[in-house]
Lab assay of single mutants.
Amino acid sequence: EEPGTYGVALYRFQALEPNELDFEVGDKIRILATLEDGWLEGSLKGRTGIFPYRFVKLCPDTR
C-alpha cells in the first residue's frame, strides 16, 4: 500500500452524493486531504471521495 495517512472505518458510510465515498466497517481508507466542516477526502479500492471524519479512526502514520 502507498505511504501516507490511513483511517479505519468505525461505521458504515453510505454515499448520498456522487462525490462521497462509501465504505464498510473495518475498511482501511487512505486519507488524501482534510476539508472544511469535518470532512475528509480519501481513496479506497480505486475510488476517491469525501466522508465525515467522525466515521474513521486515524491510524498512526506508518511507512
Rank of each mutant, 00 (worst) to 15 (best):
R63W: 10
R54A: 13
F51L: 06
C59T: 10
E17S: 12
T5I: 10
G38R: 06
P60G: 13
T48E: 04
E41D: 02
G49Y: 01
P18Y: 06
Y53V: 15
R12Q: 01
T34H: 14
E2Y: 14
F13E: 00
K45W: 08
T62M: 14
T5P: 09
G7K: 00
C59M: 15
Y6E: 03
Q14M: 07
T48A: 03
G7Q: 09
F55A: 12
R12M: 05
R47D: 02
L32I: 10
D37G: 12
Y6L: 09
L44D: 08
P3R: 12
L35M: 07
N19M: 06
E20R: 09
W39D: 04
S43T: 15
E2V: 10
A9V: 01
A15H: 06
K45A: 12
F55M: 13
L58R: 11
P60W: 09
L32R: 05
E20F: 15
D22N: 13
F23W: 04
R47C: 05
S43M: 11
L58Y: 06
S43P: 00
E20D: 04
F13I: 06
K28Y: 06
A33N: 14
I29Q: 00
E41L: 09
Q14R: 10
E24G: 05
V25H: 07
E2Q: 06
R47N: 06
R63C: 12
A33D: 10
E36A: 14
G38W: 00
T62P: 14
A15I: 02
D27T: 04
T5E: 04
P52L: 05
C59D: 10
T48P: 01
P18K: 08
K28R: 13
P18C: 07
E2F: 11
L58M: 13
P18G: 06
F23K: 11
E1W: 05
A9G: 07
I50L: 08
P52D: 01
F55N: 07
L40G: 08
V56H: 03
G7S: 09
P52F: 01
Y11S: 10
R63G: 15
K28F: 04
K45H: 14
E17H: 15
R12G: 12
R12Y: 01
I31P: 01
F13T: 01
R30Y: 07
G42E: 00
I29R: 04
G49V: 02
L44E: 00
K57D: 09
R30M: 04
L44S: 09
K45R: 11
F23C: 03
P3S: 13
E20M: 14
L10K: 08
E1D: 08
L21P: 02
R54C: 08
P60T: 14
V8W: 02
E17N: 15
T48M: 00
D37F: 05
K28S: 06
W39F: 11
F51P: 06
T48L: 07
K45Q: 11
E20H: 15
E24M: 09
L44A: 07
K57Q: 12
F13L: 02
V8E: 10
G46L: 02
V56P: 08
V56Y: 06
A15R: 04
Y11N: 11
G42A: 03
Y6S: 04
P52T: 02
G49R: 05
E41H: 12
E41M: 14
F51G: 01
G46V: 04
E17C: 09
D37M: 00
K57G: 05
Q14E: 11
L35A: 09
G4V: 13
A33G: 10
G42I: 03
G7A: 15
I29V: 06
Y6F: 14
G42K: 00
D37I: 00
L21C: 01
L32P: 03
L58W: 07
S43W: 08
E2G: 11
V8T: 13
G42Y: 00
G38H: 07
G49A: 00
L40H: 08
L16I: 14
L10P: 03
K28N: 07
P3V: 11
R12C: 06
L16P: 03
C59V: 14
Q14I: 10
Y11W: 08
P60D: 15
S43F: 10
Q14A: 08
R47T: 03
P3Q: 13
G46I: 03
R63V: 12
F23D: 01
Y6Q: 00
P60M: 08
R47A: 05
Y53L: 14
K45S: 09
R63L: 13
L40T: 07
L16W: 06
E36M: 00
G42F: 02
V25C: 08
P52M: 07
K45G: 12
L10V: 09
P3L: 14
P3A: 08
E17K: 15
V25Q: 05
W39M: 12
L16G: 14
E41A: 07
T5H: 07
D61M: 11
W39E: 08
A9P: 02
L16S: 15
N19V: 05
R63Q: 10
L40Y: 09
I31W: 00
P60S: 14
L58A: 05
T5N: 09
V8F: 08
V56K: 00
A9T: 04
V56L: 07
L10N: 01
K45M: 08
G7Y: 04
E20A: 11
L35K: 15
T62E: 13
C59E: 12
P18T: 08
R12A: 15
I50A: 08
P18Q: 13
P60A: 12
E24D: 13
Y6P: 02
C59N: 08
I31R: 00
F13V: 03
D61F: 09
G49M: 03
G49N: 06
Y6C: 06
K28A: 03
G4W: 09
L10A: 02
R30D: 04
F51S: 01
W39K: 07
P60Q: 14
A15N: 05
T62N: 14
T34F: 12
I31H: 07
D37Y: 05
L21A: 00
G46K: 02
G42D: 05
V8P: 01
R54Y: 09
T62K: 09
G49D: 05
L58F: 10
I31L: 03
T5K: 09
E36I: 00
I31C: 06
T48K: 15
E17L: 13
G7D: 01
L21Y: 00
D27M: 06
D22C: 11
S43E: 15
I50V: 12
T34P: 05
G26E: 00
A33M: 07
E1K: 13
K45D: 14
F13R: 15
F51N: 02
T62L: 10
T48H: 08
G38T: 00
D27N: 07
L40V: 14
R47W: 03
R63P: 15
I50Y: 06
L35V: 10
L44H: 07
T62V: 13
L35I: 11
P3D: 11
T48G: 03
G4M: 15
